[in-house]
């Protein structure tokens, strides 16, 4: 698992993937997104060469583009997707502890988070926290909704709904 983070600018993805391609690395699943002016890359890559070789290959580029580089050998692989069946949307006043409370209640109800994205919207004086979670649970939507309703947080709106994946 390759992690790269640095100040956003055009050309980061092209430079990184070109370097990997030239050195014989294959790319797998990846998540790349701009967060607060930083560009972040988390990417599964594979080659016979191993984690230390990957760090050697990318170090000059990372230094030149001022990217923080981190490499972990992992046991994962492709074709291990879990399809989310539950979606949770959270909006509310931006204050400490929202994520911990909501995800804590969900975890206790057996909910496994597959994707989470969050953002702060609104205006600076009145920020609004928005979070969108997709995940998998054996429990019903009603049971999960009851679990988050039990938090009793009046200024946070949490809605649980089913993700109906259509196969056609």
């Amino acid at each position: 698992m390759l992690t790269l983070v640095g100040e956003d600018r055009p050309g980061i993805v092209a430079a990184v993937t070109d370097c990997l391609y030239r050195e014989g690395w294959s790319l797998g699943e990846a998540s790349m997104i701009r967060l607060g002016g930083n560009f972040t890359i988390m990417m599964m890559v594979t080659s016979a060469a191993g984690a230390q070789a990957l760090e050697r290959v990318l170090r000059p580029l990372a230094d030149a583009m001022d990217l923080r580089l981190h490499v972990d050998a992992i046991g994962g692989g492709l074709h291990r997707h879990l399809v989310p069946n539950i979606q949770v949307r959270v909006t509310g006043a931006d204050r400490a502890g929202i994520v911990a409370k909501v995800t804590g209640a969900l975890a206790q109800a057996g909910f496994n988070i597959l994707e989470l994205e969050s953002d702060v919207a609104g205006v600076e004086d009145n920020p609004v926290y928005i979070m969108n979670i997709q995940g998998y649970a054996e429990q019903t939507v009603e049971a999960l909704q009851a679990a988050v309703d039990g938090l009793n947080e009046p200024d946070i709106d949490v809605s649980v709904s089913a993700v109906d994946t259509l196969i056609g």
């Binding site: 074709h79 997707h81 399809v83 056609g168």
Partner: peptide, 13 residues
């Protein structure tokens, strides 16, 4: 908005 998969596109939604 909804999530879809396809018999002709294995292992992706």
């Amino acid at each position: 908005l909804g999530r879809e998969g396809c018999l002709s596109v294995p292992d992706y939604t």
